[in-house]
């Protein structure tokens, strides 16, 4: 009971911060970073469900993110399909692709999903670069129409801030509840001990494949929103480095901790921007910080910090 109340309080606080931030933050640059945090946060959310609760890693979420972005772009810009239904259709399609990819690989012990998703990401990246007629090739795809609310186009950093963060909060809330639901408990049982979960009558295979498909759908949604927001996409955004970055955000934030994932997304999205002043040394520092955090706070930044402050356990359901 108190846990549910706690969840509500924390969530309301987050919503409050999101609502107030535009008053404090001036200038398109900071809004842009906040918007990218919302987009990365969405992808991280899905991947966190997969890693934290099904115990499986995907190194191909950039591909699902890219599928959302490119399919939305191609259909709405080249064939003038309405953006919202397209977004939904692409989401479903991406989930189905992930489902098909997951069936043979998630059945097996070991990390076969990592390899399959990695290979899938590389193939998709090459297709984005090579199929110039459809994707614009390495120079990218420009002129993607914005999303509309009624007849109003959602354009500009501030309008998109509301759009992206509304989506993020919505999906975040659904995910928080999913984690505490029967499905969430089943997934956590699988993560703890697959054999026991199976013996308890949980269809472990099906749960894992379904959560993988859901996480791919999150990434696809983020990709479509990204494309409509920036109106320009290029393959570089969707290479395996992005997949690695997203996994990093999950791990740094704290595996299986959705709040930690948000912190990880925020810190690691902002970090390269802060390090930007270091120019050529930015990536080097990124690598060092990544190693440092993982070596000294392997349970993740947020749980690590909480422990450091000594306030005990965290809100999220996955303390153990």
């Amino acid at each position: 009971m108190t846990k549910t109340r706690k969840k509500w309080i924390y969530f309301s606080a987050l919503a409050g911060v999101v609502a107030l931030l535009p008053l404090l933050v001036k200038g398109g640059y900071y809004l842009l970073i906040l918007n990218i945090i919302a987009i990365n946060g969405l992808v991280v959310l899905g991947l966190n469900l997969l890693i934290g609760f099904a115990g499986q890693i995907s190194l191909g979420h950039a591909a699902f993110f890219g599928m959302g972005a490119y399919f939305s772009a191609i259909f709405t810009a080249m064939y003038n399909t309405p953006p919202w239904p397209t977004l939904l259709g692409v989401m479903i399609f991406t989930a189905v692709v992930a489902f098909v990819l997951g069936i043979p690989t998630l059945r097996l012990a070991g990390h076969y999903l990592v390899m399959a998703t990695l290979g899938f990401n590389i193939i998709l990246y090459i297709l984005m670069v090579q199929m110039e007629h459809w994707t614009g090739g390495p120079s990218g795809f420009a002129g993607i129409p914005p999303l509309h609310l009624g007849s109003l186009p959602i354009q500009g950093d501030l309008s998109c801030y509301w759009l992206l963060w509304t989506f993020f909060l919505l999906v975040f809330f659904v995910s928080l509840n999913l984690v505490d639901s029967r499905v969430g408990r089943a997934l956590r049982a699988i993560h703890e001990n697959e054999l026991v979960a199976n013996a308890l009558g949980i269809n472990t295979e099906r749960y894992k494949v379904v959560i993988f498909a859901i996480s791919a759908a999150y990434a696809s949604l983020a990709g479509s929103l990204y494309a409509h927001y920036l109106s320009f996409i290029s393959p570089k955004t969707f290479d395996i480095f992005y997949s690695v970055q997203i996994v990093t955000m999950v791990v740094v934030g704290g595996i299986g901790n959705l709040w930690g994932g948000l912190l990880g997304a925020a810190v690691l999205t902002a970090l390269p921007e802060i390090l930007h002043a270091m120019r050529d040394y930015a990536l080097l520092l990124y690598g060092l910080i990544l190693m440092g955090v993982l070596v000294f706070f392997p349970e993740g930044l947020l749980p690590g910090l909480v422990k450091l402050v000594g306030r005990g356990r965290l809100v999220n359901g996955n303390e153990n």
Partner: peptide, 16 residues
């Protein structure tokens, strides 16, 4: 998983 991600960090560090 943590150790694998540490090698990712090491890879970035060495490359840069």
């Amino acid at each position: 998983l943590i150790l694998v991600m540490i090698t990712v960090g090491a890879s970035i560090t060495m490359r840069e």
